[in-house]
């Protein structure tokens, strides 16, 4: 019975990793850019959700608008996703696009992304202080018990959200015209504008998709673990990134598989060993996978042309 409880926890953790990994993989798939700021966009998403929720519900010394939690949740989710995607698009417009226009080496964009993440983290710390914020309760907790296994409604929502997002993104990328354009850019960035496809619009769209998923992950994470702090995005972001690479970065199925794999490894280690060994085992397993299959589970090796 304990086994099923662990499986459920693993599914929940895996969903967070998968949601963040999807953002990494989308941007990488289109631009061949590791958007290292993505973990911090997730953190910003959680904070935006916090401010929206406090504004609506009150708390922390604010009276709030006094709406009911159900309505507040219905407003917070889309509002957070929109505001978070604005953050992502701002990064794209102010930092990545000028570099792309100049035809700068990919490496410089990666460093810019790394620095943008640091700025978000520490800017947040400097502006809001080191005090932890506790997230207001948006969803009344319901616990279903089957035998010894207990499931909260939140856990179900998290897992369902990850799967819905996966299906949606898979549909957008493989079935729609804009998805075809995205795949086209990753195939040949120079020929795509010749086909009359607006390069920048597609890239902005990619950033909107990726960042709003990070925003969604931010809300769900803040609802599950209602303590917010500025560095919460760093570790989970790096881990999700590793998960995306293990799955084969640039491939949406890879992000989901990698995210859930990491979730299962972590919970599995905690179930058997002391919890301090979690990171050690998780990263060793991932390193082992990359040793054996350097391009990840779903990745395709790029051939070098001479």
């Amino acid at each position: 019975m304990e086994f099923f409880q662990h499986v459920l926890n693993a599914l929940q953790f895996g969903s967070f990793y998968a949601l963040i990994a999807l953002g990494y993989t989308l941007v990488y798939g289109v631009l061949r850019l590791i958007n290292f700021a993505h973990g911090d966009i997730f953190m910003v998403g959680a904070y935006i959700a916090y401010f929206v929720a406090v504004l609506l519900l009150g708390g922390e010394g604010m009276s709030g608008l006094g709406v009911s939690p159900g309505v507040a949740l219905a407003i917070t989710v889309p509002a957070t996703m929109i505001l978070t995607s604005l953050v992502g698009v701002t990064l794209e417009r102010t930092m990545y696009r000028p570099l792309r226009r100049k035809g700068a080496d990919r490496l410089y964009v990666v460093i810019t992304a790394l620095m943008a993440g640091l700025m978000l983290e520490n800017g947040n710390l400097a502006l809001l202080g080191a005090s932890r914020k506790s997230f207001p309760e948006l969803l009344h907790k319901v616990i279903w018990t089957f035998g010894n296994v207990s499931v909260t409604n939140l856990k179900v929502i998290v897992v369902v959200a990850a799967i819905v997002v996966f299906v949606l993104l898979e549909f957008i990328v493989s079935k729609t015209k804009i998805g075809m354009a995205m795949r086209g850019i990753s195939y040949d960035k120079f020929a795509i504008p010749l086909m009359g496809i607006p390069l920048d619009t597609i890239i902005v769209f990619t950033f909107i998709l990726g960042s709003s998923m990070a925003g969604l992950a931010g809300i769900l994470y803040a609802m599950s673990y209602p303590i917010l702090e500025p560095y919460m995005g760093a570790l989970i972001g790096w881990k999700a990134f590793i998960a995306a690479v293990v799955g084969g970065i640039g491939d949406i199925r890879g992000a989901i598989v990698g995210g859930f794999l990491l979730g299962f490894i972590e919970i599995g280690v905690v179930a058997v060993f002391p919890s301090t060994l979690r990171d050690l085992f998780a990263f060793s397993v991932l390193l082992g996978i990359l040793w054996l299959k350097p391009t990840g589970l779903f990745g395709v090796a790029q051939t070098t042309k001479i």
Partner: peptide, 20 residues
Amino acid sequence: DYLAIITLAANYIVISAIDN
């Protein structure tokens, strides 16, 4: 990029090995 992740994971592994 894949080698970058391996170095990143190696860093984490060293830190958490010493932590333990």
